Every structure is written in structure tokens, then in C-alpha cells.
Computed example of a mutant assay.
Amino acid sequence: MKQLILAIVISFIITIIIGPIIIPILQKLKFGQSIREEGPKSHIKKSGTPTMGGIIIISAVFIASIIFALGNSDLMIAMLVTLGFGIIGLVDDFIKVVLKRNLGLKPYQKLIGQFIIAIIIAIYAANHPYIGTSLLIPFTNEYIDLGMLYIPLTIFAVVGTANSVNLTDGLDGLASGVTLIVSSFFALVSLGLGYYGLSIFAGTIVGACLGFLKFNYYPARVFMGDTGSMALGGAVASLAVLTRMQLFLPIIGGVYVIEAVSVILQVLSFKLTGKRIFKMSPLHHHFELKGWHETKVVIVFWMIALILAIISMLALSIY
């Protein structure tokens, strides 16, 4: 527990220290966010706010993790997965912001990179002597061995989680706040299950998200961009995989799931019927267009994430 607290504190302090250093650099380089014309009108004033702030999160997690990483392969693989997804997001942001191509990487290019990373961690976990192909079933003490189905399911979970977190990052403090709650859950659960290295890694995510909120909460001084949201998605996914808790992702990551499903339903509905289910997707924009202030949407989603975290704790028998 002492190391977990220390990991949180170190990551938090690093974020608080480097944030005021990196943000002016992003401003000077004119790495400003472009706002979609079809988006909520209230977001127009955010145009030009520095993006790619995920560099702050990744730096804090990387430095804090390195301090505790010696001799812990699980922590190292989680960190590398996070870094890998962060690099995909960084390239995407660079193309959007610097090369002025608003769509960034093409979908198939993103997916190729994501699938490569997902395959690596799936194979690593499947061949790990203390992980293997068994998954913990929520609300039971039982594990289910998926055998040959393990790798495709894990790949789907990793890629799906990364993209869902990416979709959630649309309001000031939304993705960072929700992920703070999700990573806190994994920090405590990993500790209870005996995955001490992963508990420390989750702690670095907690500290980084908490520190980043100082700069990212409304009105945001910096956005994490795909650099941050993809990295956080990779971090959450790796924690689930390495603790054998992929089946918990729809519960603890319920906010991410709802956001992703809202996009899927919106697209399907429009293509099949020509009508939209929501005023705009992802779901957080729907509530904005219904008249909710941005901070109200964020706080409500945080509360939902907290409730889901409590439910997820109840789904375990270790507490």
C-alpha cells in the first residue's frame, strides 16, 4: 500500500511540475485544437487551445513507472502498451495539428497499429504462467478458460477499450476524470489480487490523471488529444488483461462503452433509416445540445463512473 501511495504522489507531482513547462511549448508551436463546425457551438471558443497534452500524462506515467519497474515484467508490458497506443495517438495528433489534415490517420492505419499492440499483449498474457487463458467471472469466485477464444477476445477488448476512451475525450475533464476513477479501481483490485506491480502502474495513472485535471478541467488550458486518450485506453486495457479482468470492462468501463455504443447506434440508425437517435454523438454531446452545461455533463458522467466502480468492487469477492 505504501508503494501504491508513493506511485500516485510521484506521478501527481511530476504532472504538476511538467504541465506548466509543456503547455507554453505547445502554445508556442501553435499546436492548437481545431473545432468541428458541426459540433456544439459552445465549443467554438475552445479553438486554438493547446492539444497533445497527453504528452504530460505519458511522461509522468513513464517516469514514475520506471522508478518501480525493475524486475516487474507485468508493469513493463503495461507501460509499453500504454506508450505504444500513445505513439499512435501522437502521430494522429501530429497529422491533424501540424500537417493540417483534420481527419488524422486513416482508420485502417490506426487499426493496424492497434491490432499489432493488442496481439502482442494477448500472446504475452496467454503464455504467462500466472495469467494464461482464464478470465475472472464477475460476481463469482470462478474463472473461465477460453482456450483458443482467449486471444481474439482479448484483442477485441484492447482495441475496443482504446477507441472507446478516445471517443469519451470530448469535454473538459471528462476522459481524465473517468479514467482517474477506473484506474483507482484497478489500483485497489490489483493490490488485493496480489498484482503488486500492476497496482503501482495503476497508481501512476491515478496520479497523472489527477494532476492533469488541474490543467484540463473546465475551462481547459490544454487538451490531452489522441496522444492522451489512446494512451489511457491502452493503460486501462492492459490492466484488465494482465489482471484477467477483461469481463469486468463493460462494468468498470461502462461510461466508455456507453459513449462508443452511442456512436455505433447513431451511425447505424442514420444509414438504415436516415434518422438520428441522438442530437449528436458521442452521448456527452447529446446532453450538451439538450441544454446541459458542459460541467454538468462531466460531473454526471463522473458520478456514473463512480457508481460503476462500486458495482465492480461488489462483483469481486476479495473485498
Results as ranks from 00 to 15, higher is better:
residue 298 V to I: 06
residue 165 V to G: 07
residue 139 F to Q: 01
residue 85 F to K: 07
residue 130 Y to L: 10
residue 224 M to Y: 12
residue 228 G to D: 10
residue 111 L to W: 13
residue 142 E to I: 15
residue 5 I to T: 09
residue 264 I to T: 06
residue 33 Q to G: 01
residue 211 G to A: 09
residue 301 F to S: 05
residue 282 P to S: 04
residue 151 I to R: 10
residue 295 T to L: 05
residue 259 E to I: 08
residue 20 P to R: 11
residue 301 F to Q: 10
residue 31 F to C: 05
residue 247 L to A: 07
residue 159 V to C: 09
residue 218 Y to V: 06
residue 97 V to A: 07
residue 282 P to K: 03
residue 318 I to F: 12
residue 22 I to L: 04
residue 259 E to K: 12
residue 167 L to G: 03
residue 227 T to L: 13
residue 115 F to W: 14
residue 177 G to V: 09
residue 155 I to F: 15
residue 76 M to D: 04
residue 314 L to F: 12
residue 133 T to S: 03
residue 297 V to A: 03
residue 158 V to K: 11
residue 242 L to P: 00
residue 187 A to S: 11
residue 266 Q to T: 12
residue 163 N to P: 01
residue 176 S to Q: 10
residue 256 Y to I: 09
residue 312 S to W: 11
residue 283 L to P: 01
residue 306 L to I: 15
residue 28 K to F: 08
residue 124 Y to S: 01
residue 140 T to A: 03
residue 235 A to N: 07
residue 285 H to T: 00
residue 281 S to G: 01
residue 299 I to M: 05
residue 250 P to H: 09
residue 277 I to T: 07
residue 132 G to E: 06
residue 54 G to F: 13
residue 264 I to K: 03
residue 217 Y to P: 02
residue 158 V to G: 05
residue 295 T to I: 11
residue 124 Y to N: 00
residue 129 P to G: 04
residue 109 Q to C: 09
residue 38 E to Q: 09
residue 27 Q to T: 12
residue 132 G to T: 12
residue 303 M to H: 08
residue 255 V to M: 10
residue 247 L to C: 02
residue 92 D to I: 11
residue 130 Y to R: 13
residue 215 F to S: 04
residue 150 Y to M: 12
residue 244 R to W: 15
residue 163 N to V: 03
residue 34 S to Q: 11
residue 16 I to L: 14
residue 154 T to Q: 04
residue 76 M to A: 09
residue 39 G to L: 00
residue 311 I to C: 04
residue 157 A to K: 08
residue 84 G to N: 02
residue 159 V to F: 14
residue 313 M to W: 03
residue 85 F to Y: 12
residue 237 A to H: 02
residue 276 R to V: 11
residue 142 E to D: 15
residue 60 A to P: 03
residue 238 S to Q: 06
residue 315 A to F: 01
residue 59 S to P: 07
residue 74 D to E: 08
residue 275 K to I: 03
residue 182 V to E: 09
residue 20 P to V: 10
residue 146 L to N: 08
residue 29 L to M: 06
residue 85 F to Q: 03
residue 14 I to F: 05
residue 144 I to Y: 13
residue 11 S to F: 07
residue 63 I to H: 04
residue 54 G to H: 14
residue 27 Q to H: 14
residue 132 G to F: 02
residue 152 P to M: 00
residue 214 K to R: 14
residue 280 M to D: 02
residue 133 T to M: 11
residue 4 L to T: 12
residue 297 V to L: 02
residue 315 A to Y: 00
residue 174 L to T: 11
residue 224 M to D: 06
residue 35 I to A: 00
residue 173 G to E: 07
residue 289 L to F: 01
residue 269 S to P: 03
